[in-house]
Simulated scan of single mutants.
Amino acid sequence: MPCGEALRLFADGIAGGDLVFDRLSYVYVIGACARSRTALWEGKEVHCRVLKIGLGYDVVVGTTCIHFYGSHGDCGSARKMFDEMGDRRTSATWNAMISGYCSQKKGSEYFAHAALKLFCGMLRCGNNGVNPNDTTMVSVLSACARIGDLVTGSCVHGRIEKIVYVPHDVYIGTCLVDMYSKCGCLKSALVVFNRMKMKNILTWTSMISGLALHGQGKSVLNILEAMQVTNIRPNAVTFTSLLFACGHAGLVNEGLVLFYSMGSRFGVTPNIQHYGCIVDLLGRAGRLQEAYNFVIEMPLQPDKILWRSLLAACKIHGNSTMGEKVGKHLLQLQEESGTVDTVSRCEDFIALSNVYASTGRWKDLEMVREKMKDKCIQAEPGYSSVQLV
């Protein structure tokens, strides 16, 4: 049942006053609110009703509420409920909180560290009958992949080998491939991938993405051939990784053949990310005019990211004439968007000035800097981080 319809039926039942909902009804309703991106306030209202009728003590209801708050990015409320449950917490409760941390987009690194810290706390509660399961491991591995923590990821893998037969678990295996690839250990990712008896589209895509990330273009094409033998067809995400790999490995012709065969051979319609990969592919190869013509003739409206990719290629190859043309497109897009994005505007001005600097056009560079001052645009300071092991 669609989430909106479930909420409407529940509201009608409450308004009628002749129905009494039990704990399972509230579990389903709160779960529906968790699945709906726009039902944050409705879920809070249902949670208030849960507290009023005395179901706040129920472990299943409380766990579902934690999942609800985590799904809507309110990890503060989720953690408050988690802490209040105390000794009543089950493995599902721990999983709901850990997966809630791992699902956050903003501040993802902070929440990934929080998820790993919570996982350590879960291990210390093992004597109370709370033990991690495959759901826990999937979340923890994704947290390790997000922050590139190979040491913790390897330790988690060791624990998994004691409780799960990895070659037959497609989800655990896929997460391990993804984790090792993102942590820079491609050899281990390949070992896990080759051991797996069952592979789905996510498994193949994770391996292709890992190889692409490490510049293994030829290996990516070999994996694609092996994938086709198993009758698994690549999807849009797979093609993004394939084209990315071709671009970084200098396989221009192979990348173009893949792109133009997406619809006819694989039934996948190219999206803006795929067009961006081709622009990057041609730009890295120095075929700037071809890349510019490709952008102008593409059926989709080119976005800022695509133009920035071409502008960066102009700087690398020292083509200030093309760079100036692309830079003006970018600044025009900023004006037409009607939104004030200071960071993006700063990046575009800086990129254009760098193109002028790379070819010694100092007067043009000074003009760009003066425009930045007139528009009160300041360069954002850069930063880097170092992981201490």
Rank of each mutant, 00 (worst) to 15 (best):
P381Q: 07
A312S: 15
G70M: 10
N200A: 02
R308S: 15
H274G: 06
D83R: 03
L51A: 11
G76S: 05
S25C: 13
L310R: 14
S25Y: 04
L288M: 14
L388R: 13
K106P: 07
C314T: 06
A379E: 15
A189I: 06
G62I: 07
T90Y: 06
M179L: 01
G215I: 07
P234M: 01
G76Y: 05
L224N: 01
C48W: 02
G56Y: 13
L352Q: 07
V138S: 00
G73I: 07
S261D: 03
M137C: 00
G121H: 10
S139K: 06
V279S: 09
T205K: 01
N235E: 04
G129N: 08
L55K: 08
T136F: 14
G43M: 10
A312G: 14
I98L: 07
S99L: 01
F119G: 04
K105N: 13
C175R: 03
V166P: 07
S188L: 15
M85T: 08
D169K: 12
L251A: 01
L118N: 01
V343R: 12
N194Y: 03
C246Y: 07
N253G: 10
Y383N: 13
L333V: 13
E324K: 13
H157M: 00
M322H: 11
A313G: 08
M1R: 13
V386D: 11
A312Y: 12
W204A: 05
I98K: 01
S241P: 03
F82Q: 05
I350V: 05
F21W: 09
E366I: 00
G62S: 08
E109C: 14
I53H: 03
Q228E: 15
V220M: 05
D169S: 15
I30H: 05
I53R: 10
D83Y: 02
V61P: 07
P270Q: 08
S188E: 15
K106D: 10
E380Q: 13
N222P: 08
H157S: 06
A226S: 13
A32N: 11
K325V: 00
E297C: 09
K371N: 03
D12S: 15
F21Q: 10
E297K: 12
M367C: 09
L40Q: 06
E5G: 06
V138M: 04
G360M: 02
A112G: 08
V27N: 04
V130N: 06
G126N: 02
D374I: 05
A312R: 11
L190M: 11
T269M: 11
C376N: 15
Y101F: 12
C65W: 03
N222C: 03
L118S: 00
I201E: 09
V138A: 08
R35P: 03
A78Q: 02
E380Y: 15
F239I: 01
Y275E: 09
N222E: 09
S337Q: 05
H317Q: 09
F21K: 02
R345Q: 14
L55D: 05
H113V: 06
C183R: 02
L213A: 06
R265T: 07
V61Y: 04
D83S: 08
R8T: 14
S320L: 10
R146E: 15
Q228Y: 00
G56N: 11
V20L: 13
V326T: 10
N128H: 12
G173N: 01
L306K: 11
